[in-house]
Simulated assay, not measured.
Amino acid sequence: MRGGLAVLAVAALASGCAQDASEVRGAAGRQPLQAPPARTLDAYASKLGAVHAARVAAAKRWNLERVPLTAPPPPAEKPEIKAREGFEVTGQENLPPVFTSIPTEEKVVFLTIDDGAEKDPAFLRMMSELRIPYTAFLSDYLVKEDYGYFKDMQARGVTLNNHTLNHPYLPGLSYSGQKREICGMQDVIEKRYGERPTVFRPPYGNYNRDTLRAAKACGIEYAPIWNEEVFADHWDYREWDRKIHPGDIVLTHFRGEDDWGGTMRDMVREFLDKVTAEGYAVARLEDYL
């Protein structure tokens, strides 16, 4: 075990060493790249070992079938995000793109959670202990019941994004009505959580050109929807092959036993057991935007 961790430590330290060596060469000609001191490798290997042990313990504690895989580092160069074919609107240029996956060859998926009805403290602990990133899309009519719950979520590193004030069918509203719903939620998130989102999901995944025009006017840059939806006991798929693909965005909701016969923790197990068994890690959506 220690040997394997030491190899990982060497790889993790290599980029920093290379930068240092480059600076030395620039000042004094070519110099051999020096290996990090053994004690540095030992300390880093010990840290990796502790992190892995914590994930193993958390997976056991939360009754997962396997230890979740660790996502690769975020891409140094962000992928170009375009509207999915067939999801464009007339005059799409310069409007937030609607997309269902991120262009990547890495075996990663992105977990996104909508609305805000269920506020389960155990879910927050579970996701933190397992170190699973996710993105929240919030609607004020549900979030206002307990703004503090989502403040705690934000403090754990979760990005809180826009899902409108009242979760309406947006294409049924005028442009000004849609703008009130989207900009109004921008104001709520900024007031309660200190940041104005750049990411927005239209309720039900329904939108028209006015939706995207209003979203852009409110400061939105991206409008992701989803390729799969996970519940406490099953998955639904957009694609005909009913499979997960690299870069897929997965939807679920803040829901509990009254809505789908299971808890948020049951949903996480359903989600993680499948993606891990198929060799996928969970990455943070914002790292790719």
Rank of each mutant, 00 (worst) to 15 (best):
Y193G: 07
I182W: 05
R180D: 11
D152P: 03
Y175G: 07
R192L: 08
R156S: 13
M153S: 00
G148D: 12
K179C: 09
A155D: 12
Q186N: 06
S174F: 13
Y147H: 07
M153T: 01
G157Q: 04
C183A: 11
I189T: 05
G184D: 01
G157T: 06
P168G: 15
K151P: 00
L165D: 03
D152T: 13
H163V: 09
C183M: 04
R156A: 13
N161A: 10
M185L: 11
L165M: 15
Y147N: 09
L170S: 10
G184M: 03
R180E: 10
S174T: 14
Y193N: 08
Y169E: 13
K191L: 09
S174K: 12
R192W: 05
G148H: 15
T159R: 03
K151D: 06
Y147R: 07
Y149T: 04
L160N: 00
G148F: 06
I182A: 04
V158Y: 00
N161F: 04
N161R: 06
R180G: 01
Q186L: 03
Y169A: 12
A155E: 13
I182Q: 05
L173K: 15
H167V: 10
P171V: 08
L173D: 07
M153R: 01
P171G: 14
F150Y: 13
M185T: 00
Y149F: 15
C183V: 09
M185V: 01
K151R: 12
L165W: 05
V158I: 14
S176M: 15
V158K: 01
G177L: 07
S174Y: 15
T159G: 05
D187R: 14
S176A: 11
F150V: 03
P171R: 12
P168D: 10
L160G: 04
Q178C: 09
Q186G: 03
N161P: 06
G184Q: 06
Q186M: 10
Y149W: 05
C183G: 05
T159L: 08
N162E: 02
Q178V: 08
S174G: 12
H167E: 04
Y193E: 11
M185N: 10
L173M: 12
Y169V: 14
Q186A: 05
Q154G: 01
G177K: 09
Y169G: 14
Q178T: 14
F150N: 03
S174A: 15
D187N: 14
N162K: 10
K151N: 07
G157E: 02
V188Y: 02
N162Y: 04
L165E: 09
S174W: 10
D187H: 11
F150P: 00
N162L: 05
S174V: 13
D187P: 03
Y149D: 03
L173H: 13
Y193V: 06
R156Y: 01
